[in-house]
Design a protein around this nucleic acid. Structure first.
Lengths: 224, 224
DNA sequence: TACATATGATAGCAATACTATTATCTTTGG
DNA sequence: CCAAAGATAATAGTATTGCTATCATATGTA
């Protein structure tokens, strides 16, 4: 069986957490803890306690908790791109590919046994709740220069290219893709917490409705 | 001359800041300071120093800095709704009204002399950078019950109703409006900091392009 | 065996987000 | 015009956070 591993930008960590048991513990437990406590309440001290280690040891892997969040969320986007790649392989028409992308983005995220130490369900909730905290900071520009947003950009670019295939004259492919990606998580959030800002009910059709919303939004917008 | 004042939900403050000189100073200076420092670096201690008062005095107006952020951002949405109302008055067709709304949302924000102690340019930047911090917290649900999101919801509802007038069969008017409102600030931000996620350049056409993007997005999406 | 690398244990520090108390200053209404 | 109420200032204090530093020990590896 092939061993899969997600390759991430080196600026995201001080010492590669995928290489050691402690590192893997940090990833694995921080996902669970941030999901439980929220990013504000999450601290390296609490994490260290949870994995029977020390604050200082965690600091040897990640400069600070913001970088750890960057790491986890980059991991998520890279994982999603890998799922998108699987979904569009063998598809011919760009329309079908685009639909497959939107389906992958909006579908429910379940534990992926290919990546043992990551709980993808919890990680998805972290992305929904905390993504914006990776770029709405005073460090955006330096973080960007360090390539910390590479995973997200890569996925956006892939989908934007499909849009260009469908309609080369549409003026805002990148803006549309980033809008759709963020709308997906925003509507997911609103559906649970601020339902009057959405029309997607919190029921078993949630993900299907989310898909319909995105499909209409994207396909109608780029229609010639 | 008529004196205009923005009426806000009582849960947003402990003591109404619009009623006293100190309160107005708090509003006025906090807008400038948060804009300069960013919300994380902003503290009541720094604010108190700036207005020659004390931390304890500021706490008499606002429970904490998050509530102050809520207050400022609610003020912004109420102000924007007032501008939208001015823009659509006397317009007949729902299409024209919707265009006027989108124009108001995407246009450049300038100082409004009707509201002396608020710097709307700075406040707009605060909305762009910090809005998400008002709802992506563990208090969303209680904050929502307290009505803290009333100003935003009110504006969204107004625009969603216009969409329903244009196409009563479109399934997601609220989702589309909230998406467009947030997309507007996201693309504004990406244009400056993560240009590869947008197609809107940082030049004198920025607001016009933003408008075109939103108009196409909304009108195409709801087309029958 | 020696050396490097990873980890653990412990301490310490400045800043943050509050809370509490007491004193003074300003209104305003009787 | 004075007293009571309300607003503000001054000061102190506390638990937590985010981070750095140092030193000891464990583990693997050349």
């Amino acid at each position: 069986m092939a061993v899969l591993s997600i390759k991430l930008n080196e600026h995201l960590y001080l010492s590669d957490p995928q290489h050691t048991k402690l590192g893997q513990n940090i990833i694995s437990k921080s996902v669970v803890l941030i999901d439980q406590l929220g990013f504000e309440q999450f601290t390296f001290k609490k994490l260290a306690k949870e994995i029977d280690s020390t604050e200082a040891s965690v600091y040897r892997y990640f400069e600070n908790k913001h970088r750890l969040l960057h790491y986890l969320i980059s991991w998520y986007w890279s994982w999603l791109e890998y799922k998108v790649d699987l979904a569009i392989v063998n598809l011919q028409s760009p329309e079908d590919k685009l639909k497959a992308c939107l389906r992958t983005i909006s579908e429910e995220k379940k534990y992926d046994p290919s990546f043992e130490f990551v709980n993808e369900e919890a990680l998805y909730r972290i992305v929904v709740d905390e993504l914006d905290k990776t770029y709405l900071t005073k460090w955006v520009d330096t973080d960007n220069r360090d390539g910390l947003f590479g995973s997200f950009k890569s996925l956006c670019k892939k989908i934007a290219n499909i849009i260009v295939e469908i309609n080369p004259t549409y003026e805002f492919p990148n803006a549309l893709v980033s809008t759709a990606m963020l709308a997906s998580k925003q509507q997911y959030f609103f559906s649970s917490h601020l339902p009057s800002l959405s029309n997607i009910k919190e029921d078993k059709f949630k993900h299907a409705k989310l898909y319909t919303f995105l499909e209409t939004l994207v396909f109608n917008t780029i229609k010639k």
